[in-house]
């Protein structure tokens, strides 16, 4: 049994855009997730965190690098070879509206993984899994025969989670599961995911752009910028001692839910816009927006190194 449920090394994912242009969605990203732990991945939209998740779950074919799921290299497996391994790894999607098939009842949606992996033979047998799962995510049996479009966003997302958890996977990739939800519902979903983790000891790759929630659910947090991992360390550490200027900017940009503190807040944040991933800036990709940029930043790309024990950062300031 491996200590790490997922090991990602030098993962690269490029997409062709026409003849010549290439979108550098993910460039040389490495991290690992231990069993029963949560890795949070944060970054702005367009930073490649979703592409990263989709390469890992092999909806995309990675351009380079290796992905080890429980010690097995799945980087170049065919979909057929992958099929049995998919039981170990499931995904929760961002949009609770488009991630559920509108023509299927909730019962059929949750039973689909069971049928796909021949855990049950028919829908009647699936009920013994579907009903407990529905109740586990806070819904009732009466909901089983309803269609997804009748539910509210939070309820749908819980159905999506039930679908991902019903096979009892060892790793669940949560691709911004709470971004589209209301604040009062976000906490429900996060609690649900955490409780289930404590019960079954599964690992999460939790992707979000909301730093405050990521801190709450994660053991380790990685910050991505324009396809690259710029900082990786323990969840507490990243909030108490952020090293990369981008992480610092991200943190200071979070709106503070306290008017007194908000008025005191220093002017911080990150100026400017995200450059295009088709033509990423040379050197450190963040140098165009970085307040501390030095001449070297625009020439040489910094590599990930340990600045403190268990705290890696890719920045020339810490050379």
């Amino acid at each position: 049994m491996n200590e790490n449920i997922l090991e990602v090394e030098h993962l690269t994912q490029h997409f062709r855009l026409g003849r010549k242009e290439v979108v550098h969605a993910v460039d040389d990203v490495s991290f690992c997730i231990r069993r029963g732990q949560t890795l949070g991945l944060v970054g702005e939209s367009g930073c490649g965190k979703s592409s990263c998740a989709r390469s890992i779950i092999r909806v995309y074919d990675p351009t380079g690098g290796t992905i080890l799921l429980d010690g097995t290299d799945i980087t170049h497996m065919s979909q057929k070879q992958l099929q049995p391994l998919r039981r170990k790894m499931q995904m929760v999607f961002q949009d609770p509206y488009s991630s559920l098939n509108a023509r299927m009842t909730v019962r059929d949606i949750i039973a689909e993984p069971l049928l796909a992996h021949h855990v049950v033979k028919n829908r009647e047998q699936a009920n013994s899994f579907v009903y407990p799962m529905l109740e586990r995510v806070g819904l009732t049996r009466e909901h089983a025969d309803r269609y997804a479009h009748e539910f509210s966003g939070g309820q749908r997302q819980r159905v999506g989670i039930a679908r991902a958890l019903v096979l009892q996977p060892e790793l669940v990739i949560c691709d911004e599961p709470i971004s589209a939800l209301d604040v009062s519902i976000q906490a429900q979903v996060v609690n649900l995911l955490r409780d289930y983790q404590q019960e079954k000891g599964l690992a999460y790759l939790f992707i979000a752009h909301d730093l405050s929630m990521v801190r709450y659910v994660s053991d380790v947090v990685g910050v991505m910028y324009l396809g690259q991992l710029v900082e990786l360390c323990g969840a507490e550490e990243i909030y108490s001692h952020p090293l990369h200027p981008y992480t610092q900017g991200l943190l200071s940009a979070i709106p503070v839910a306290n008017p007194a503190l908000a008025r005191q807040k220093k002017s911080g944040g990150v100026a400017g816009d995200l450059p295009s991933p088709v033509t990423p800036p040379a050197g450190c990709r963040f140098h165009t927006r970085c307040p501390f940029a030095k001449p070297i930043c625009s020439q040489e790309a910094p590599c990930m190194k340990e600045a403190a024990p268990g705290h890696s950062v890719a920045c020339h300031l810490y050379d």
């Binding site: 989709r54 779950i57 909806v59 979909q79 992958l82 099929q83 049995p84 998919r86 039981r87 790894m89 499931q90 995904m91 999607f93 961002q94 949009d95 488009s98 991630s99 559920l100 098939n101 023509r103 299927m104 689909e112 993984p113 049928l115 796909a116 992996h117 999506g160 679908r163």
Partner: peptide, 23 residues
């Protein structure tokens, strides 16, 4: 996303075509 979801679940192409796409 629901079709991607079906693929990550491990559903067969037949299921994806007949249960997800065509309906």
């Amino acid at each position: 996303e629901f079709v991607l979801a079906a693929r990550t679940i491990g559903s067969s192409s037949r299921t994806i075509l007949l249960q997800h796409l065509i309906p």
